[in-house]
């Protein structure tokens, strides 16, 4: 069959398939329309047969390129993954995230160790030389500590809480996601972020203790601190999972290990988003406000406890997965 005859004979069905795909891509008839779907699958299979024929007989033609693309487009619509559903979302949070985290407790432990190492170094740095604080803390914070006041009072009286909370959670989430992405730098950026945040915590603690602000600091930090630090440590763990895949791929190839481990790492990183939004709101609305201390302590412990209990104990049952 010459190309001309082949095209003239089969072109109507390619065009029909194209218009059908156009309809679907613009969100036209979906699952409900049975005859439409049957027609689609018939035309799809016929066109793949045409493609196979063209592959043997018409190498190097534009027609072949067109048919490849047409089949790819149809294939994309026919084999598309499950659309976003509420049930899928629920399963993601109830099962997939905690399961991913429990698989990688070692990475989270390392993440916590690096963070605490930073804290210890921050404490001892200020112990050794008070001026060490100026490497990491901005001057206005330093000035207010030296004059014996919490810096938070100044900041939160100028900026209203909604703006402050937005600023806090966006920058914290950026840090957490960066800690995850940093795994691709063989964990160097992840470790640096964890260390830096731990170091800052250590410096602030020691400095406030030296200037008699320890009580005020604890009162401020207790409401949101546990949740915030936990979230950063979990996403740091996610970064270390990625780094470990690159460094110790085991029996996989490096790129396969990366793809395999990345899928559970991103689940661990995602949980930091809702956690940090919550922590940011508390830090802006409740922590600087005049709530009783016991309330802040109870709130902080509850949130931190719920976070870890959720990660350790939910989604233990193996649910029958929907076929994919």
């Amino acid at each position: 069959m010459t190309l001309g005859v082949f095209v003239r004979k089969n072109r109507p069905r390619w065009q029909r398939l194209e218009t059908m795909l156009g309809l679907i891509e613009r969100g036209g008839p979906r699952r409900t329309n049975r005859s439409f779907l049957q027609e689609l699958s018939t035309f799809y299979r016929a066109t793949t047969a045409d493609l196979a024929f063209a592959q043997t007989h018409y190498r190097g033609t534009t027609l072949l390129l067109f048919l490849h693309q047409l089949v790819a487009r149809a294939h994309n619509q026919i084999y598309r993954p499950n659309r976003f559903s509420l049930r899928g979302c629920l399963r993601f949070f109830r099962n997939e995230i905690p399961q991913a985290l429990r698989k990688h407790l070692q990475a989270i432990t390392w993440s916590a160790i690096v963070f605490l190492l930073g804290t210890a170094l921050g404490l001892s740095a200020v112990q050794f030389d008070e001026r060490a604080a100026s490497i990491i803390l901005p001057t206005n914070v330093l000035d207010s500590i030296y004059s014996g006041h919490m810096w938070t009072g100044g900041i939160f009286s100028v900026v209203p809480a909604p703006v402050a909370s937005t600023f806090l959670f966006t920058s914290n989430i950026s840090v957490a996601l960066m800690a995850f992405a940093g795994g691709l730098s063989f964990g160097l950026i992840t470790a640096w972020i964890l260390f830096q945040n731990g170091f800052m915590l250590g410096v602030v603690f020691k400095l406030c203790a030296d200037y008699g602000l320890l009580g005020a600091l604890l009162e401020f930090i207790t409401g949101h601190g546990l949740l915030e630090i936990s979230a950063i440590i979990v996403s740091g763990g996610a970064g270390f999972v990625v780094a470990n895949a690159l460094l110790n791929p085991g029996s996989y190839s490096r790129s396969d290990a990366l793809a395999e481990q990345g899928r559970s790492a991103v689940r661990m990183a995602i949980i930091s988003v809702p956690a940090l939004i919550t922590a940011g709101c508390i830090e802006a609305f409740i922590s600087p406000a005049h709530f009783p201390v016991w309330f802040k302590i109870a709130l902080g412990l509850t949130l931190g406890g719920v976070f870890w209990l959720y990660l350790f104990f939910t989604g233990k049952s193996v649910q029958a997965n929907t076929p994919r």
Binding site: A72, H75, N76, Y79, R80, P81, A181, V266, I270
Partner: peptide, 24 residues
């Protein structure tokens, strides 16, 4: 963007490839 095996991308794939953008 498609999957290496030709199927369309799922939202986990999209998250993975885009959250890593700061690094590359």
């Amino acid at each position: 963007v498609i999957k290496v095996d030709g199927t369309p991308v799922s939202w986990i794939d999209i998250l993975l490839r885009n959250l890593s953008r700061p690094i590359d």
